[in-house]
């Protein structure tokens, strides 16, 4: 696969440079919502959706910004758009499933300050991806986030039953697990040529 092809970009964001495990983006929700698979899956889906919306908006806005030569407003515009997209998702989830809304709690509005989303928007701008490439990249990033979240949730459900040393508070042992997962993901380096 050529490094420019959308399929490669998807793989690149999904496995090779996984947003959570290789780029350290979106760690707060990664630790906050990964206690149970039941919450991890809907959270992952919400992030994928916000990723796609944010990617589309960021692509459009960037064309406008470049046209008017006001690139220094990029950060402010991106964050405003992401915040609105998150608001939209929040209202939809609240309407469709109040139970899920309560389960996700504070982490749903906090998608706004999820660096994975802004990071994806900034990377796609820096690398000057075209429309299809941006879409593939954001889909991969979202799916990669969800994969990491669900894997971690599965591990942590097992961890509940294990006896760990007292000093290893839940955060410390979770980071150790994340480190091992990250080590495993390094095996994907070079995948797809």
């Amino acid at each position: 696969m050529s490094p420019e092809s959308p399929a490669f970009l998807f793989l690149h964001a999904f496995l090779i440079n996984n947003f959570v495990l290789a780029l350290f983006l979106g760690l707060c929700p990664f630790l906050g919502v990964s206690a149970k698979i039941k919450t991890a899956v809907p959270m992952g889906l919400a992030v994928i959706f916000v990723m796609l919306v944010a990617s589309l908006c960021a692509y459009g806005i960037n064309i406008l910004l470049v046209h008017f030569e006001i690139e220094y407003l990029r950060l402010i515009c991106y964050i405003a758009v992401i915040a609105s997209a998150v608001q939209l998702v929040e209202m939809t989830v609240k309407k469709l499933s109040p139970t899920l809304f309560r389960m996700l709690g504070i982490y749903l509005p906090l998608i706004t300050t999820n660096c994975a989303i802004l990071g994806m928007a900034l990377f796609q701008t820096f690398n000057e991806y075209n429309f299809v490439q941006s879409l593939a990249y954001s889909l991969g990033a979202g799916a990669g986030f969800m994969l990491a979240l669900v894997l971690m949730a599965g591990l942590r459900e097992k961890l509940e039953l294990a006896s760990v040393p007292d000093a290893c508070t839940s955060a410390a042992i979770s980071f150790m697990l994340a480190g091992l997962l990250s080590l495993a993901f390094m095996g994907f380096a070079g995948l797809g040529g």
Binding site: S174, F175, G179, S182, L183, M186
Partner: peptide, 15 residues
């Protein structure tokens, strides 16, 4: 220097 190291070092400091 690679990503796993970041997680592991932070985890050890937390411990």
């Amino acid at each position: 220097i690679l990503p796993p190291g970041g997680f592991i070092v932070l985890s050890l400091w937390l411990v």
